[in-house]
C-alpha cells in the first residue's frame, strides 16, 4: 500500500513537472509573444439539471446513498489580467449545489447542500487565450493552467434521529486547475468553443469530527480533537471536471455541457464522497470593463 502511494505520488509529481517544463520551455521560445491586456469580462451562469448524485459518509452510515436528484447553479466570471505580460487570466466562481438521496425506496432520505467559492489565476501558455479564444486567439487549441483558492461550506443531513444525523463540510484549499479549449471555426458564423476544465486540490485545511466524536463534544463541550485537518491531493483526492460547449447566439452564447464533481476525503479514519454529474445549461455574455 505504501509503495503504491509512493508510486502515485511520484507519477503525479513527474507529470506535473513535465507539464510545467513543456509549457515554460515553449513559452520561452516564443517569449516575445504578447497578448494585449483585455478589458473584456466573461460572465456565465449555468443551471445543473437532470443531475445524478451519490453520497457516502462513513460517519453517518456504512452505505452509499445513490438513488437521488441533484440541482446545481454556477456563476462564473473570467477575464484576462495585466499579470505576467497579460498572460494570466482570472476566474472566479460560485457553485451552489443541493441534492437528496435514498438508500432504499421508502427509506430515510439523505440531503446534501453546499456552496463553493473560488478565485483562480491561470497562465495562458504561448499566445493562448482561454477567456475568449474565438475572438482573441488564432489557435485552435488554447490552454491555461494555474492555481485556484477555494472555500466550501455545506453539510449532509440524514433524516434519522440520533447523535450523528449529519455532518458539516468545510474546507479551504489551494487547487491546481487547467483549461483546454478548442475552437471550431465556421463560415459566416462566429466560432463554437469546446472546453474542458480540470480542478483538483493540492493542499488546504478541512473540518471533520474525529472517528467517533460527536458534534455535542465539539460544539457544546468545546473539545477539538484533530478537527481542523491538513488535506492534500491524497487524503482529499477530489477532482472536478467541466465539459462545455459555447454556441454563439446573437450577442451572447448558449452554454451547454456536463459538470462532473468527484468530491471525496479520507480523514480521521472517516471516509466521505459525493459524486455528482449534472447536465448544465446556461448563457455566457461578454462585457467591457471601464
Amino acid at each position: 500500500m505504501i509503495i503504491q502511494n509512493m508510486l502515485r505520488l511520484f507519477t503525479f509529481h513527474i507529470s506535473l513537472l513535465t507539464f510545467v517544463f513543456c509549457a515554460f520551455s515553449q513559452g520561452n521560445e516564443s517569449g516575445d509573444d504578447f497578448i494585449p491586456v483585455n478589458k473584456e469580462v466573461k460572465h456565465s451562469t449555468v443551471f445543473g439539471v437532470m443531475g445524478m448524485n451519490e453520497v457516502y459518509d462513513s460517519y453517518i452510515s456504512p452505505y452509499a446513498f445513490n438513488d437521488g436528484v441533484d440541482f446545481r447553479v454556477q456563476r462564473e466570471t473570467a477575464r484576462m489580467t495585466k499579470l505576467w505580460g497579460g498572460r494570466v487570466s482570472n476566474q472566479s466562481f460560485i457553485d451552489v449545489n443541493v441534492s437528496s438521496d435514498l438508500m432504499t425506496e421508502g427509506g430515510p432520505e439523505w440531503y446534501t447542500a453546499g456552496l463553493r467559492y473560488g478565485q483562480g489565476w491561470l497562465y495562458n501558455f504561448h499566445d493562448c487565450n482561454v477567456v475568449n479564444p474565438a475572438e482573441h486567439s488564432a489557435r485552435k487549441w488554447n490552454y491555461a493552467a494555474g492555481l485556484q483558492a477555494s472555500g466550501y461550506l455545506g453539510g449532509v443531513y440524514y433524516d434519522r434521529s440520533g447523535n450523528n444525523p449529519g455532518q458539516i463540510k468545510f474546507d479551504v484549499t489551494v487547487n491546481a486547475t487547467g483549461i483546454l479549449a478548442y475552437t471550431i471555426h465556421r463560415r459566416k458564423h462566429r466560432p463554437i468553443v469546446l472546453s474542458y476544465q480540470l480542478t483538483f486540490p493540492l493542499m488546504g485545511i478541512a473540518f471533520s469530527p474525529n472517528y467517533g466524536q460527536s458534534y455535542y463534544e465539539i460544539f457544546e463541550l468545546d473539545n477539538n480533537d484533530h478537527n481542523a485537518v491538513f488535506v492534500n491531493t491524497f487524503n482529499m483526492p477530489s477532482n472536478r471536471h467541466r465539459f462545455l460547449v459555447d454556441i454563439p447566439i446573437r450577442r451572447g452564447e448558449l452554454r451547454l455541457g456536463y459538470d462532473v464533481q468527484i468530491n471525496q476525503a479520507k480523514i480521521n479514519n472517516l471516509e466521505y464522497y459525493n459524486h455528482s454529474i449534472d447536465f448544465v445549461i446556461g448563457f455566457t455574455k461578454y462585457f467591457t470593463r471601464r
Binding site: 502511494n5 502515485r8 507519477t11 503525479f12 507529470s15 506535473l16 513535465t18 507539464f19 513543456c22 509549457a23 515553449q26 457516502y56 462513513s58 456504512p62 452505505y63 452509499a64 501558455f125 487549441w141 490552454y143 493552467a145 491546481a176 487547467g178 483546454l180 480540470l198 483538483f200 491531493t233 491524497f234 483526492p237 477532482n239 468527484i262 471525496q264 476525503a265 479520507k266 471516509e271 466521505y272 464522497y273
Partner: peptide, 21 residues
Amino acid sequence: LSIASMLLPLLCLYSCIVVED
C-alpha cells in the same frame, strides 16, 4: 506533451478514489 501531462494527474487521482468498504 503538455496536454498529455496535464491529463496524467487525472489518472493518478482516479486510482486513489474513495470507496466504501
